[in-house]
């Protein structure tokens, strides 16, 4: 599927990034560019460094070498304003990681209230709107422990959106879900992408990647083996490694 909308300027630029945990090098000379409004999927076998890359973009994990810029801001800069960066970058995790002691509405409201110090009435109105958007208007007062996995994941998406990010990162967000609830989460992400939100997904959902992505990266062993539009990559991969992987999962 070709790009449904005009792509803007680069939002995330990753260049020559290396990340090592001790002697273990999980990212080797990784480079990718994501433009405004673009939806990028990163696929590849487990342990190929995909999740680490997302965490690097959000400065949750510092990089060893190279450069990552998000909306013109250098992530590797020691003087980085992490608050400003994290305001621009939303991340959704595989295990939802909602705050279990707060209900759905409070989970969405917390960060804008505590971190951005926004007006409570405005925050609440926006949180209600966001939860309606992810289809959870009837679960405002429900606690995470009482929600299904798919519902928790949608609250997590709303929670990230409440910060008004420029780019959203999704780290295998459907990996812990059963097939029925997977779909409701994927639809939510698809809607977001269609609205023009810049999205980077690490995913094992090949069908979703083929359908929704503008660009797909295949990583293995800490390097980007090849990348291209989904039609090219899924239809006619150039690299043997890519073909072997796709044969296994498709």
């Amino acid at each position: 599927m070709a790009s449904r909308h005009q792509l803007g300027e680069p939002v995330v630029v990753v260049a020559g990034v290396e990340k090592a945990f001790g002697a273990l090098r999980v990212l080797k000379d990784v480079a990718l560019t994501v433009r405004r409004g673009e939806t990028v999927c990163i696929i590849g076998p487990s342990g190929s460094g995909k999740s680490t890359l997302l965490r690097c973009i959000n400065a949750l994990v510092p990089i060893s070498r190279g450069s990552i810029t998000v909306a013109g801001r250098e992530v590797n800069d020691p003087a980085l304003d992490k608050l400003a960066l994290r305001r621009d970058v939303g991340i959704v995790f595989q295990q939802y990681n909602l705050f279990p002691h707060k209900n759905a509405l409070q989970n969405v409201m917390m960060a804008p209230l505590h971190v951005l110090k926004q007006d409570k009435a405005e925050v609440e109105a926006r949180a209600r709107m966001l939860l309606a958007k992810v289809g959870l208007s009837d679960k405002l007062a429900t606690y995470p422990g009482e929600l299904s996995g798919g519902q928790q994941q949608r609250v997590a998406i709303a929670r990230s959106l409440a910060m008004n990010p420029k780019v959203m990162l999704f780290d295998e967000v459907t990996a812990a879900l059963d097939p029925e609830t997977k779909k409701e989460v994927l639809v939510t992400i698809q809607d977001l992408a269609a609205e023009g939100m810049t999205c980077i997904l690490v995913t094992h959902e090949m069908g979703f990647a083929r359908e929704v992505a503008d660009h797909v990266y295949f990583t293995d062993g800490g390097v980007i083996v090849e990348h291209g539009p989904p039609g090219d990559l899924f239809g006619a991969a150039r690299e043997e490694r890519t073909r072997a992987f796709l044969d296994k999962v498709l």
Partner: peptide, 9 residues
Amino acid sequence: EAGESLGYT
């Protein structure tokens, strides 16, 4: 980590 990613100090 989730809290950190939302910009909490």
